[in-house]
Design a protein around this nucleic acid. Structure first.
Lengths: 342, 342
DNA sequence: CTGTTAGCGCATTCAG
DNA sequence: CTGAATGCGCTAACAG
């Protein structure tokens, strides 16, 4: 047996199937792709032969030869559970519509730009960029060559040609604050997500909503990030302050984790001493010793809509623009009444 | 401005560059791919023109026309942080060697088989399957058509043609048990990973090692899984038993999370009442309120070696076989001395 | 319904 | 170094 290199048995091609079935290549092509123009009889016969031969269409050739859009490129952060969650519905919707999706993960050494370039190399018909970290100007520039959809991140400039499907961040933050205020909290702090657009939106929403509740002088913001370490460091700074908060809204679930860890370090109990709210509603929210109270994004809806709209745009030129979904607030075990003394 | 469909500006091809540079297509081909056979002068000049035109090689065409292996397909669980971690070194190593890597994620609705088929459709030269859930027989069968490397999961049958790069599970579990026993623990339980090969190996190692420590009658195993929910349920069952353990070794870090949550539910303190050990050493290990004590797999080494060996096999027919890396034990804050009363 | 003919963009070969 | 030719496997249009 060949134990080292690849072996010789060439993969069967369309031609092989055609020959074995005694028909033309075109007919086989029509049949395997389910296109109209073949009798039921030939269809079942040829399909059977194709299966016997172990025929599998060559995606590269199909993509190269095809004229109609069929390939959607997706970039995402491999270490984000929220992003991973989105892939499920993206795959499902795309495959259901007969589209190929090709993934390009962003990792430590493979950044946003690398990922986008890899996708461009495959001549994708459209790009689905999950929470891009690329400057908006570059997205704008890219959108001159192909449809670009930013999933999760809003575009700042109104003239943009980049489409967006996202969550109403202000609504999410508002739900969180309303919930906390109803529980009697006043010193509600925010561990933010840094300078990105999403982080900025959530931070602004926090500030606005606090103000609306007459808690303007209680506004307390500290720079965090999208991971536990950042959340931990940020919370520590918060606790070192003169008037520690009785509730903390974190940028996302991972960040909330770090916050909880800092509280633990300080000997504080959640939610007795301090309440914590996350954001995303990713599986990680259910990993805490206590179920995390969180703002749950409609991940299925976000993924599905992104792909549906992108396809509608590709095939019928339908505009997308800025699609906004409303999140759901999910009370967990990490929020409770404000401590009496506060 | 075109705000809906794709626009007309065709992507530049090799031919476009050649024309603009006033040279032949072949020369441009040689230059853009860094092949020998062009003068330094032409090289810099043509490259400059290519850049100006925004030329990007068409991966599909390149793959279709090429004769030498250049594409490695990777399948992994999108919601596993340990898998995500591996991608970093995989990307890096592959790109460094001039290989394309194409990802196919496994999600709720896109299982192992879907993922493999998608990869096969791209005519990958080799498959890198991270902790496959596909039956070994199918992998075996696949390996007849192209090199298959199973990352993380050992093959059971000796005659297998499937290559493996993995961690020494027995060593990892042993380190964990030695650590706990040294801390005075005797009632060390195991929340396992279910019926998979990895789960089985860790479970067996647990049993063997306990026996070697003379703790055979303390062996206590309960079925868990690779996620927090499974870990939580399992730990709950453990605590309901007649003699609850003073230490628990979980299948992996996520599972350990669930275990910690069950302990919290039961009003037990970690590590004062019960010690907990995870496995993988993924970023999730650092998300706990306490840093998780865990068996850290050499993810960088696993990823790098997998790709290096796969390429060596493709290009020089070098055999791979079964490569085993030794994990590192990372003491965290979730393990401590056994409670006095136990 | 069938078979033929053209490409898709590139790598590769081979004679200049 | 060039330029032309061939083919990778497939889709799409066309004439039978």
């Amino acid at each position: 047996m060949d134990r080292t290199g690849s072996n010789g048995s060439r993969k069967p091609t369309l031609e092989d199937v055609a020959r074995a079935a005694g028909v033309s290549r075109s007919l086989v092509s029509i049949i395997v792709r389910g296109a109209p123009g073949a009798s039921e009889a030939s269809r079942t016969r040829v399909m059977a032969i194709a299966r016997d031969l172990g025929y599998l269409p060559d995606v590269r050739a199909r993509l190269l030869a095809g004229t109609s859009p069929k390939l959607i490129g997706v970039t995402y952060k491999t270490n984000s559970l929220h992003h991973a969650d989105l892939l499920s519905s993206i795959y499902e919707t795309a495959e259901g519509a007969g589209y190929e999706v090709i993934l390009s993960g962003r990792t430590r050494r493979h950044d946003d730009r690398h990922a986008v370039n890899a996708l461009l190399g495959y001549r994708c018909d459209a790009l689905l960029i999950i929470s891009p970290e690329v400057p908006e100007a570059e997205l704008q520039q890219l959108s001159a060559s192909l449809p670009i959809l930013s999933l999760g991140r809003r575009m700042v400039h109104a003239t943009t040609n980049v489409d967006v499907v996202r969550t109403d961040e202000a609504a999410g933050i508002r739900m969180a604050i309303d919930h906390l205020v109803a529980l009697g909290h006043r010193r509600v702090a925010h561990v933010d997500g840094g300078g990105g657009v999403i982080g900025t939106d959530r931070r602004r929403a926090y500030r606005d909503c606090m103000t609306r509740h007459g808690l303007r002088d209680q506004v307390s913001i500290v720079t965090g990030g999208d991971n536990a370490d950042a959340g931990r460091r940020a919370a520590r700074r918060l606790l070192d302050g003169p008037e520690p908060p009785t509730a903390i809204i974190a940028y996302n679930d991972e960040c909330a984790w770090g916050v909880m860890r800092a509280l633990e370090d300080a000997g504080l109990s959640v939610p007795r001493d301090v309440s914590v709210v996350g954001y995303d509603g990713s599986p990680v929210a259910r990993m805490a010793p206590h179920e995390l109270t969180t703002v749950h994004q409609d991940t299925d809806g976000l993924g599905r809509l992104s792909v549906e709209r992108l396809i509608a745009r590709l095939e019928h030129g339908l505009p997308i623009g800025d699609v906004v979904l409303v999140p759901t607030f999910v009370p967990g075990e990490t929020t409770g009444p404000a401590p009496a003394g506060a």
